[in-house]
Design a protein around this nucleic acid. Structure first.
Length: 641
DNA sequence: CTAGGGTTAG
């Protein structure tokens, strides 16, 4: 019968990424499905088997060896007592049963433990509660399989969510995909718990494409997000360096809040401390300090309690705004608010003092930390070294390196690049070079800032030969990662070297960081190498990285320069559908592209309809739009300056 | 009976 052909080996290993939902197999089992369904009068079980076998085929250890289908392929469970409403949960000790399950090492053992309950009616609620005690992903999958195949219960969304939780915590991404598909097929529709877990776990792992595709599915399913989810998405966008997307998510959040206020949806979207601080942080990252301040006061108005992290962020904001006094006041009032400042608070205030040239206060605070035995870390020392650099006390700065070492705090690349810059600014290039050589000789990993610092230093004092030698080394990077070499070469504008190292690294599968793609696109774009821009972009997409909107703007520009308006249009449309909000420059760029090929209808349909462009049109942009409007009179609602 | 979030130094 069908299922016997469904052993793990029959699932092609290439059936990713939809993971095992393989049409061939589903087709071959259709007949059995019908029979099975008729027999026990419920859902098609065989499909479940297909999915679960495929899912398990990725397992590696003992749980996999039991992927035999023989034991549970035919006989519908004799009990199948779904007609009766009587449950026997009461007599079952859930804790003891969970403990027995926890002892099993493979599926057969687990099935054996559960076998007495095939003939008894356990409620779905009981099963969910049983599962929620299990943390191991393989055992929870086995239990899910038992529920489905051995006992013919119908797992609900609670049960699936618990299994999903364990699978995600174990970073089993393929299994998660399979489980998700299975949920949908079995009508246990994913809910906001499911989506929230998927989006955050995939996002945390840097799998942004997946994370945003879950978001899309969530919206298609009309599942309302809540505040934490939106905080998460804003944070994801921030990590991607995509301010536009963050703003777009934020406006979605505001829409969700409005809907919630009108009682249209459930869930809770009232901003809390963490979501405020996420927003704060987003504004800080993008240098929007005034907006950050306004969020802070809105937060205080909303009577949200300040917590440690929010205070730390705000000390930083005040500092960046040149409001050292406020930063100082906030720091010293933390204890009164019942918040003990952490090492991060101290470090941030140290930096604020340094930026404000309040060196006396900084040194005083540092001494206080040492006297009162408040935790210090490498950031504390790096900040102080930089401050001694500003006060021109070079030897004191240098001594701090010895001090931190003696206290068991290891200097890092930031420590060394700080001190090297100090030597260089003090005109002591020899000391800088000596330290650099010593670091290289000791096998310390030189990162791009260290390299760049030295290269720039050599160039500044006219030692062009030394600078060139360093750059030359990077072409054949043996002791530094290729990604680092690429970033340095690109930063130094060495197109040919950067290109060749990038191609080597990409072919060797070594390009893991999205920023490497981006710096190559930047490099090619600023040098008018548009064909190369597209090449890197294609590689980036093939490697499943999600480009930020600035990068997309550069790629659109490249397509335009190459007169590939159709490709530009496809990308522009796709990214907007993905929720990407472009700066107006990008829209104008597209406008002029459409204009150049005389596609005036595109101007209307793609750029203007539903976009926020019209109220912001300036005289200059209106002039650039004129060709497009030649057919139509200019709308009087447009604001001409 | 199920879930998830934020901060410092070159």
């Amino acid at each position: 019968m069908g299922t016997s052909s469904l052993s793990a080996t029959s699932i092609p290993s290439s059936s990713l990424p939809s993971f095992g939902i393989n049409n061939t197999h589903i087709t071959t089992t259709t007949t059995t499905t019908t029979v099975a369904s008729r027999k026990n009068g419920n859902h098609p079980r065989t499909l479940r088997v297909v999915v679960s076998v495929a899912r398990r085929s990725s397992d590696k250890d003992v749980w996999r060896s039991t992927t035999t289908t023989a034991s549970h392929k035919t006989t519908p469970s004799p009990a199948s007592p779904r007609r009766t409403k009587v449950h026997f949960d009461q007599g079952v000790d859930a804790a003891a049963l969970a403990a027995s399950i926890a002892q099993t090492t493979n599926e057969q053992e687990l099935f054996a433990v559960m076998s007495p309950f095939k003939t008894r009616q356990l409620s779905t609620r009981f099963l969910a509660s049983l599962l929620s005690r299990e943390q191991d992903w393989q055992r929870s999958i086995a239990l899910l399989d038992w529920i489905n195949e051995e006992a013919s219960y119908t797992p609900n969304v609670f049960i699936y969510n618990v299994v999903m939780r364990n699978v995600l915590r174990a970073k089993q991404w393929q299994v998660a995909h399979g489980l998700f598909d299975e949920m949908r097929q079995r009508a246990a529709s994913p809910d906001r718990f499911t989506y929230s877990m998927l989006i955050t776990h995939f996002g945390k792992q840097g799998l942004f494409d997946d994370a945003f595709s879950w978001l899309q599915k969530m919206e298609q399913d009309r599942v309302a997000g809540d505040l934490v989810l939106y905080s998460n998405l804003i944070e994801l966008s921030r990590k991607l360096g995509d301010y536009s997307r963050a703003i777009s998510v934020f406006s979605q959040l505001k829409r969700a809040i409005a809907a919630w206020r009108r009682n249209e949806v459930g869930g809770c979207v009232v901003p809390d401390t963490v979501s405020y601080s996420t927003l704060l942080n987003m504004y800080v990252e993008n240098q929007k300090f005034v907006e950050a301040l306004s969020v802070f006061s809105e937060m205080k108005e909303a009577k949200r309690a300040l917590d440690l992290t929010t205070c730390n962020i705000m000390i930083d904001v005040y500092g960046q705004l040149g409001m050292a006094k406020e930063a100082d006041r906030l720091f010293w009032s933390m204890r009164k608010m019942g918040i003990g400042p952490s090492v991060v608070s101290y470090n941030t205030l140290l930096r604020v003092y340094g930026d404000a040239e309040l060196f006396g206060e900084a040194i005083h605070l540092f001494r206080l930390m040492q006297r009162k035995d408040i935790e210090q870390n490498v950031v504390t020392y790096n900040t102080m070294i930089s401050i001694y650099g500003k006060t021109l006390e070079h030897e004191k700065a240098n001594n701090l390196i010895q001090e931190m070492k003696s206290r068991g705090i290891e200097p890092n690349a930031i420590t060394y690049s700080t001190i090297i810059s100090i030597w260089i600014n003090a005109g002591k290039l020899d000391r800088a070079a000596m330290l650099f050589q010593k670091l290289r000789a000791s096998g310390f990993e030189i990162d791009q800032v260290l390299y760049q610092t030295m290269i720039v230093a050599y160039e500044t004092v006219g030692l062009v030969g030394h600078a060139k030698r360093l750059l030359h080394e990077l072409k054949r990077p043996d002791n530094i990662p290729r990604e680092t070499a690429i970033r340095i070469l690109a930063g130094a504008g060495r197109i040919e070297e950067a290109t060749s190292v990038f191609r080597q690294a990409f072919d060797a599968g070594e390009v893991k960081d999205i920023s490497v793609f981006i710096c190559m696109i930047d490099l090619f774009s600023t040098n008018g190498k548009y064909r190369n821009v597209i090449e890197v972009f294609d590689k980036m997409r093939r490697a499943c990285y999600f480009p930020d909107s600035n990068t997309i703007a550069l790629v659109l520009n490249a397509y335009g320069k190459l007169r590939e308006v159709e490709k530009a249009d496809a990308l522009y449309t796709e990214m907007q559908e993905e929720g990407c909000v472009f700066p107006n420059e990008v829209h104008f760029q597209m406008l002029s592209l459409y204009g150049a090929i005389g596609a005036f209808d595109m101007v209307e349909s793609r750029c203007l309809r539903g976009s926020s462009l019209i109220p912001t049109l300036t005289r200059k942009s209106c002039i650039s739009l004129l060709p497009a409007f030649m057919k139509e009179p200019i709308d009087s609602t447009m604001h001409l300056e």
